[in-house]
Write a protein that binds this DNA or RNA. Structure first.
Ligand SMILES: [Zn+2]
Ligand SMILES: [Zn+2]
Ligand SMILES: [Zn+2]
Ligand SMILES: [Zn+2]
Lengths: 163, 163
DNA sequence: GTTAATATGTTATACTATAACCGTCAAGGA
DNA sequence: TCCTTGACGGTTATAGTATAACATATTAAC
């Protein structure tokens, strides 16, 4: 049995404080290396996302920020989230109008998102295979592919078992 | 040279009145076969979508409907669009909060959507290959896949050439 | 024809996102 | 050091997207 990989974590019991601390440490390291400013609001926003393996709406994030003494107006949350997404620390889940912490920041941050329709947990799976397949379909139509977003809906292992 | 396939039409010059009439005829036939009620508003909504190979926002559709003497409040458009989507006559493009007529209603209506970021045209490509790849990724994580939505952003042949 | 279900229209409201403006602060050059 | 500049984070106000709840009208079933 191999140890659980990063992408498997979302769907299995694990020491979650590890995700949180490791995630923050990685982000700080990357920010330093790239000259990005991981300011208090931004850092706290990432922390809020990292606390859960599910996607949070901007207004949900905003509530947490406001409770922690940061601004309580929408732009505060949206700007922090935009920063995190732009720099690969978080992803936007289109189907949910929500955001989730990236499971492996720094690496190629494109991914397939597996969304549980029951418990809303979100996992990232490698994009490679699916992306190649989309690339082939694009080529056939003369479409110049730039970005591909894949969001799958279904049941996570726990919820599938329960059902 | 094969004739252009249904999915190639969006990106190439063609007799577009054909898309419109064929699309409406097919929808009516399918509705009859399945006992669905393709009412005037619904039919007109489909017609509005069929007039363009791009995605239209609900409020954009609503303007057309209102101009044609139908209701002018949001639910009128959303309900008609929901009906079309639920029955495979149209698709929702998450990234654009918009809707587009299905290029091949009646067949398996899942597809990869290729969205031109320049002219907003939308084409459908077969989902088979990409879906298999996503299925493989899901299986590896014990995720029970139900629906997969793939939206690719890039440049259509015309806009790619212009750039 | 009566009844039940479906569909269409309304008003009002909820949810999501951005524009525009201003004060603060840190970095960098005169 | 002082001043300029630009990034940041806070605000108010507003734009854009979507649905709840209710009333009327049409359609389908009996
Ligand atoms: Zn965890
Ligand atoms: Zn679940
Ligand atoms: Zn056409
Ligand atoms: Zn184009």
């Amino acid at each position: 049995m191999a140890l659980p990989t990063e992408t498997e974590r979302a769907f299995h019991a694990h020491d979650h404080s590890h995700c949180l601390h490791e995630g923050l440490a990685r982000a700080e390291e990357l920010a330093r290396a790239r000259g990005l400013r991981l300011t208090p609001v931004r850092r706290r926003t990432l922390e809020i996302l990292l606390r859960e393996h599910r996607a949070l709406g901007a207004y949900e994030v905003l509530e947490h920020l406001a409770a922690d003494g940061f601004g309580r107006q929408p732009p505060v949350a949206y700007r922090a989230l935009d920063f995190l997404v732009a720099n690969g620390f978080a992803h936007r889940i289109q189907r949910l109008n929500a955001f989730t912490a990236c499971a492996h920041p720094g690496e190629d941050h494109q991914a397939v998102f597996l969304i549980c329709r029951e418990c809303q947990s979100v996992a990232e799976a490698p994009l490679d295979g699916p992306r190649d397949a989309v690339e082939a379909a694009s080529d056939a139509l003369g479409f110049r592919l730039e970005r591909v977003s894949i969001e799958a809906l279904g049941l996570c292992p726990q919820c599938a078992q329960a059902a």
